[in-house]
């Protein structure tokens, strides 16, 4: 015990004063971040009379599931069954994510490990495009979708996700750093072709990176309202339907908070499960 204590005190270049100072900054940051989150959770469990209490209370006093029950009832009343919206979003998330992971990994492997004439061009355009936001490209994107005839179909939401640039960038950097050339060389000597190498050697090693790509694309698709391209009611997504409920008036403040919580919980759970993999992937995310 004593030894451990001594080691702690003698950490390289660390002072108690500095520790305290940083602890205070960290605590302030953590509280500032936590307040709205806790407020939101607390709000979702407040009964109606507590929502309109004066002065407003931060914490819920008599927690209730009524808001969630109401949400469920409201969902049941909607013209298109809620399960339909849920299925739509599920379809988007699954197809979008799977396609993105497969296509981005396929492309990342040669961009990381092969030499060919157009490689710098093909990769640098992706790096440059990290600076494009969807608002900048929204109008031409719509025109292109209209031209291909994908407006009001799921292709308009799913296919562009497959080509997201951040995913490819992270995957490529991870492959560069994590897969030694000797390994690939050894496989080639053994007579494996590039497709086999990609599927049997590269893919299993870069698992942390595809879990990261999964989070990024789930995060985006799970909150996709689809309002840019989708007009048919039965093709609308869960976030769209839920946001409609929030706008349903002041009496739905509690239900609104419940909706917010439902939309938050899925990406958070996925992130919690894969956090260490994400950090591992991000350790190679530097841009040289």
């Amino acid at each position: 015990m004593k030894l451990k204590f001594r080691i702690r005190r003698n950490r390289l270049n660390r002072s108690v004063g500095g520790d305290l100072f940083l602890f205070i900054i960290l605590a302030v940051g953590a509280v500032f971040t936590a307040i709205p989150l806790v407020f939101m959770i607390s709000q979702a469990f407040k009964p109606l009379n507590e929502l309109w209490l004066y002065p407003p209370q931060f914490f819920v006093r008599n927690p209730t599931f009524k808001n969630f029950v109401d949400l469920f009832v409201l969902m049941g009343e909607s013209w298109v069954p809620m399960t339909r919206y849920f299925f739509n979003t599920l379809l988007l998330v699954v197809l979008g994510t799977a396609g993105h992971i497969i296509l981005a990994s396929m492309a990342a492997y040669p961009l990381a490990k092969h030499e060919f004439l157009f490689k710098p061009f093909l990769f640098q355009t992706v790096v440059l495009s990290l600076m494009f936001t969807y608002q900048v490209t929204a109008i031409p994107n719509y025109l292109i979708m209209a031209k291909i005839g994908w407006v009001d179909t799921y292709a308009a939401l799913i296919i562009p996700t497959w080509g997201m640039s951040l995913g490819l960038f992270l995957m490529r950097q991870f492959i560069v750093a994590m897969i030694p050339d000797e390994l690939l060389e050894a496989a080639r000597v053994d007579g494996a072709n590039e497709l086999t190498i990609f599927w049997r050697i590269v893919m299993p090693i870069v698992k942390p990176a595809w879990l990261t790509l999964m989070i990024l694309s789930v995060q985006q698709l799970w909150r996709e309202t689809g309002s840019r391209f989708i007009y048919s009611e039965k093709l609308k997504t869960l976030p769209y339907a839920l946001t409609q409920i929030i706008w349903g008036g002041i009496a739905r403040a509690g239900v609104g908070a419940a909706v917010g919580l439902v939309l938050m919980i899925v990406p958070i759970l996925i992130f919690v499960v894969n956090q260490s993999k994400v950090v591992e992937t991000m350790s190679t995310s530097g841009l040289d």
């Binding site: 961009l111 494009f132 080509g163």
Partner: peptide, 18 residues
Amino acid sequence: LLVMPYWIIFFVFTILPV
């Protein structure tokens, strides 16, 4: 062959719009 499926989609929906 490995790069193109991704890159064509990327090009059509990210570069072409710009």
